[in-house]
């Protein structure tokens, strides 16, 4: 199939062209209802992960942070595991129960971690980080027990946690777009405050930024965004960790550039990785493996080349 055919199919679907009789309906279906939604979904998932990664690294003032630092991944995985084992991944109200359970798991874990870390009116990032790790480990252990007990679901669970975009249709696209688009807009709205938060809480307060309020809002927004992304794609690693660093090398730490460019870069990267994941070998590879496989060495190369410019 040529690029021209794809263009023709798209033009037809957009109503700019009459029905094309030379291309079969099944081809049209594959292009428009299988490939296209998957590409769009991968863009938004990648974008959300990269932008959230930028947020977490800034908020924690820690270059090792990524969207999963607060235990979102374990929460989502735990939710998905429960759904796979006990509901067999059935649909609830027209949506996949795995996605729903993963989303609920992700968001509740962040809520719990936040409650643990909150002391008085303050949210100390060290405690946030540590309680995130503690809850993650706890859930991971619990998940392992479940996987041992219900080994018939083992394969499905492992495959889900590796992250994949296969089988994502338009319903997933419609779900993820609002989280991605509105999430990014809200993050952009707070980009100046995020810059100032990097100076430290007290310094931010002295410059007129209510650090605790901003932290709370940003945490809520990114948790929901990441939760939504994880719920449809499973756990895709590395995008949220590496993209913000990569972008920072070129834009500097200012969030008004970091957020949109990370979002775009993350989206495009995941799109590319997803394409690779379903084309290099006949069997589809979970995209999380590809992102780590390609992203790791590339990032090491960048780090070596531009040492001392990120931090």
């Amino acid at each position: 199939m040529s690029i021209n055919d794809i263009n023709l199919i798209l033009l037809e679907k957009l109503g700019l062209m009459g029905k094309n009789l030379l291309i079969s309906d099944s081809t049209k279906y594959i292009i428009f209802d299988v490939r296209l939604p998957r590409i769009i979904a991968s863009y938004f998932v990648g974008g959300i992960l990269a932008a959230s990664g930028a947020v977490y690294q800034g908020l924690m003032k820690n270059p090792m942070a990524d969207p999963y630092t607060l235990g979102i991944s374990s929460g989502a995985a735990f939710g998905a595991t429960l759904s796979i084992i006990f509901l067999g991944g059935a649909k609830v109200l027209g949506i996949s129960s795995i996605s729903l359970a993963a989303f609920i798991g992700a968001v509740s874990v962040v809520f719990i971690v936040y409650r643990i870390a909150k002391t008085g009116n303050e949210i100390p990032v060290t405690i946030l980080l540590l309680s995130g790790i503690a809850i993650s480990q706890f859930l991971a252990a619990f998940m392992s027990i479940l996987m041992l007990l219900f080994d018939e679901s083992l394969h499905k669970i492992v495959f889900w946690t590796m992250g994949s975009l296969s089988g994502k249709g338009w319903s997933h696209v419609y779900t993820i777009i609002p989280y991605g688009a509105f999430g990014l807009i809200i993050l952009m709205y707070f980009s100046r405050e995020m810059d100032i938060l990097l100076l430290g809480d007290e310094h931010a307060n002295n410059l007129g930024v209510d650090s605790n309020k901003i932290k709370k809002i940003i945490l809520i927004i990114t948790s929901i965004m990441t939760g939504a992304a994880v719920s449809i794609s499973g756990i895709i690693g590395f995008v949220g960790l590496i993209i913000p660093h990569m972008v920072r090398l070129f834009t500097g730490p200012e969030h008004k550039y970091l957020f949109p460019i990370s979002f775009n870069t993350g989206g495009i990267l995941l799109m590319a990785c997803d394409t690779v994941s379903r084309t290099i070998i006949p069997q589809e590879i979970p995209v999380g493996i590809i992102t780590a496989l390609l992203g790791g060495p590339f990032f090491v190369y960048l780090l070596n080349k531009r040492k001392g410019e990120i931090f």
């Binding site: 003032k61 100032i196 990097l198 100076l199 310094h203 410059l207 007129g208 931090f311």
Partner: peptide, 29 residues
Amino acid sequence: ARVIGVVPQEYTLPFNFKVSDVVRMGRNP
């Protein structure tokens, strides 16, 4: 913040801001 400015003891920032960016943050209020 428009009335009181605080000068802390010098410290290192977690990310690499340019000097002009750091000074510009003083206008946030």
